[in-house]
């Protein structure tokens, strides 16, 4: 009987089954090589559907770079990889003017940022000067060089990896740059069963280079843009918009926080919730979608007070408290 009601009320809704299938195909391709990391893969896909950039943090050797590289392979689009080093200059990322003797003019040589999917490896090893060069391009998807505007082709996704800031030779990213990342995904060590699986694969003589070649593109960049449009059509009720605003607003008045989240965080939470709903084959957002993504969207945008930091409380703890405090709209 309920099914009858559900079928009826779902009439005239956008069909998200094709999106759901495409995402499942991408996951299958990735799991040919990646063992575990389901949450990381799902969040990367959500960010790609919601037109957001992702910062992946984890200790060395937990397949951060490999996952990002493989995801880029599943989408048929321009891909580039930049290894951030302490001596990297902004021009190494964005591009530079080169004198052309034949015409006696300066030509702009585009940097590696001009791609659809950019993997920035170990982003926090470059100093603030180089980080600042990413501000404009990450937010506005264009760069200004010598007074000329260069627009990047859509889709434009930055997948950046970083080691925890406590590690040697790393810098803390500026707040303005952190805010430009839709998600900060924390990658943990694999479980015991997953680690055994990894070891068995290596023991059998798995060749990573050959395996990488096996991964086939599932989507073209045009298809990705179409899926993004479908995500835009996901229904978000007014009550849930208010709920998102309340959650983010609470970070600005919380006594545990020195810096709250920006309106950009609200937008990121809204768009990513819509993408998650679509990814799960739903045409509307539920409070679960919002609650599930709140830590990933907010953890890098908030700063704890020194007292809370000394008590060993993490940004995730504060976000959890806020989520528990605000009433779920029904």
């Amino acid at each position: 009987m309920e099914e009858e009601v559900l079928t009826s009320v779902q009439e005239n809704k956008t069909d998200y089954s094709s999106l759901h299938q495409a995402i499942r195909a991408i996951k299958q391709e990735l799991h040919q090589i990646i063992v575990g990391q389901d949450q990381l893969i799902e969040l990367l896909l959500v960010a790609m559907l919601a037109d957001g950039h992702v910062l992946i943090e984890g200790v060395p050797g937990v397949a951060k770079t490999l996952t990002a590289k493989l995801l880029a392979r599943t989408v048929q689009a321009d891909f580039s990889r930049i290894q951030f080093t302490p001596d990297l200059m902004p021009s190494d990322v964005l591009g530079t003017s080169v004198f052309h003797p034949g015409t006696a003019t300066f030509d702009f040589k585009k940097g590696p940022i001009f791609a659809n999917i950019v993997l920035i490896d170990e982003i926090n090893r470059a100093p603030a000067k180089t980080q600042a060069s990413l501000f404009e391009v990450m937010e506005e998807q264009h760069i200004t060089h010598d007074g000329t505007l260069y627009t990047l082709a859509a889709p434009f996704v930055v997948l950046a990896t970083q080691n925890p800031v406590e590690q040697e030779g790393t810098y803390r990213l500026p707040e303005a740059q952190l805010d430009r990342f839709m998600f900060k995904v924390l990658v943990d060590y694999p479980s015991l069963a997953e680690e055994i699986n990894i070891l068995e694969m290596q023991h059998r003589g798995a060749d990573l280079k050959q395996d990488l070649e096996r991964v086939q593109p599932v989507l073209s960049s045009e298809q990705l843009l179409e899926l993004r449009q479908a995500v835009q059509a996901v229904h978000l009720d007014r009550k849930l918009i208010e709920y998102i605003a309340q959650l983010v607003g609470e970070t600005r008045v919380s006594k545990s926080l020195y810096l709250g989240a920006s309106p950009r965080a609200s937008i990121a939470l809204m768009n990513s919730s819509k993408a998650l709903a679509a990814l799960r084959g739903r045409g509307f957002v539920t409070p679960e979608d919002i609650q599930e993504l709140a830590p990933t969207v907010l953890r890098h945008r908030i700063l704890l007070t020194p007292e809370r930091e000394m008590e060993g409380i993490t940004p995730d703890d504060v976000v959890k408290q806020i989520v528990q405090k605000i009433e779920v709209p029904r």
Binding site: L6, H235, R330
Partner: peptide, 21 residues
């Protein structure tokens, strides 16, 4: 699931469907 479709999904309901629900 039904409540979520109706309340969060913005789905409209006729009298007949409402009675069933």
């Amino acid at each position: 699931s039904m409540f979520e479709y109706v309340w969060y999904g913005g789905a409209g309901l006729g009298t007949e469907l409402f009675d069933t629900a």
